[in-house]
Amino acid sequence: MIIQRISRIISNYEMIMPIFAGAVTLLFVVAIFSLPLPYYEEQLYPKTYDPTSPLNPYDRGGPPFIQIDIKEQYPENSPMAGYVTSYLTPFSWYMANTTLYLGTTIVAHPGGILDEILYNTRGLDTVVEPTILFIAFAIASYLYRKG
């Protein structure tokens, strides 16, 4: 009986979103009650915030073309990491010199910062991320033209 009633409720496909949202809310409440979770002090990709640097939080420091030490999980897999911590086009250079917020515009203009960890040691992520975007654009454009 109860199974029948449940299956009748969830057979309506407009109910699936509220049910999923309910499950997520429930789990988030549990997660909030299980706080504080232990914080592991020795982080793999440590972030340092220097509010005076315009490249914040992507400022890995070091002069260009001289290898600096970057913390990686498997340093032997990316021997070239740490050579190019930032590359600025003239426009980015201008923005970095006039404002403090170049680091936040990394996706908003071409030729900005090359983040060593983002593009060198975690390159597969940067491939998958735009793929998700391209698939989303493909679906949207297909629906717009044919839908």
């Binding site: 979770l37 232990p38 982080q43 793999l44 498997y74």
Partner: peptide, 21 residues
């Protein structure tokens, strides 16, 4: 909406263990 718990979990794993591998 499932991306919130999904990526939240990845972020929490990075915070509680310090690694993602």
């Amino acid at each position: 909406s499932a991306t919130v718990p999904l990526f939240g979990a990845a972020a929490l794993i990075a915070a509680t263990t310090g690694t993602l591998s």
